[in-house]
Design a protein around this nucleic acid. Sequence first.
DNA 1: GGACAAACTGGAACGTGTTCCTATTATGGC
DNA 2: GCCATAATAGGAACACGTTCCAGTTTGTCC
Lengths: 203, 203
Amino acid sequence: MSSTASAKAIPVEDLGSAAQRDRRKRIIDATISLAAQGGFDAVQMRSVAEQADVALGTLYRYFPSKIHLLVSALGREFERAEAALADSPIPGETASERVIYVLRATTRGLQGNPHLTEALTRAFMFADSSVATEIHAVGMQLSSILTKAMHPERTDVTEDDVAVARVIGDVWLSSLVSWVTGRATATETAAHMERAVRMLLRD
Amino acid sequence: MSSTASAKAIPVEDLGSAAQRDRRKRIIDATISLAAQGGFDAVQMRSVAEQADVALGTLYRYFPSKIHLLVSALGREFERAEAALADSPIPGETASERVIYVLRATTRGLQGNPHLTEALTRAFMFADSSVATEIHAVGMQLSSILTKAMHPERTDVTEDDVAVARVIGDVWLSSLVSWVTGRATATETAAHMERAVRMLLRD
DNA sequence: GGACAAACTGGAACGTGTTCCTATTATGGC
DNA sequence: GCCATAATAGGAACACGTTCCAGTTTGTCC
């Protein structure tokens, strides 16, 4: 895994035929399935290609590296989480209560699938600038989830809100890394995150 | 790079002979030299062994994986930074001013050597529980640097101080990752960190 | 100094991410 | 339907982290 994979991934929009969109979907399905089963190490490019019923070269045409592949999978998982949260209003009287609720819900989802979380988190932390597009998408999703939890009614957010959301995101990521790498328990992780949120959103 | 390197590194204290301490030093020297030159990818185990004038098997006896090696190098760099800061009192009237000073100084040091920083940061983020000992040491160093900046006079620190220091450390790490992976400029990184510190230490 | 164990050397070998090449198959324009 | 082009299949080949082994050197105890 060199960190200098230079080629770009094929954007989803450029996938002309239905067969191509289907291949792409099969590839990400295979990725998530393998990751959920055995984590980062189990997502082997040959296995993904085989399970997606696609040649190795084709896999690399769609995703120029294992990291691109996993970060794209992360994006899809985030979309799911965002959609699930949008279904019902977020409970909680204050911003910090709502943010903690969202973090708990999301983290619970992640911790229910430790291998998958490990694989996706590792990929995210290892990604370099060649994955900037995919990373940026994920960052926007996270920021959107958090600012929505802070101010469910507002559609515009202040610069300060974004800054707070970014710090919370930072803490969340660091905690996630500590957890997936076995340096902290789920309980410790949750406690640390909630403490940080209360420090940042004193309401 | 499998994430399941199981063996333990040889603790420094267990290195009996002077020849062994010297080998260990040569290995870390070579690691830092290669990392400073070409980053994570340039730290190739064969190159490190060759430059340290040591057989590949011996390198693996001292450091059971590339990650252990780089995290140990990070520890040595942190020791240097901590010693440099201990030399003179930290300027600044308030805790946040002093913390920002320390972060600026440290970050400047890191950004003066982007390849080295990239290599060490990547390794830190990728480390799993088999590197827990080394990681813990680095975490303690960082925490100590930050709490000292917050309260230069005090020798005891409260639980709250440690929690704040941990959050600042989280933000610092995330920012560092954004920077080394080319997703944020040095200026953006610095601004984000300082903003976070002011949010956390309102003094 | 000799005998034994531990450490070291040099290098082969293996796994997995990545690249590359050729033959075959789908796709779109006429 | 037919051709030109692109996309895919299948698989060899390469790079680097890691493991392993046979032989040699170093260190320790008597």
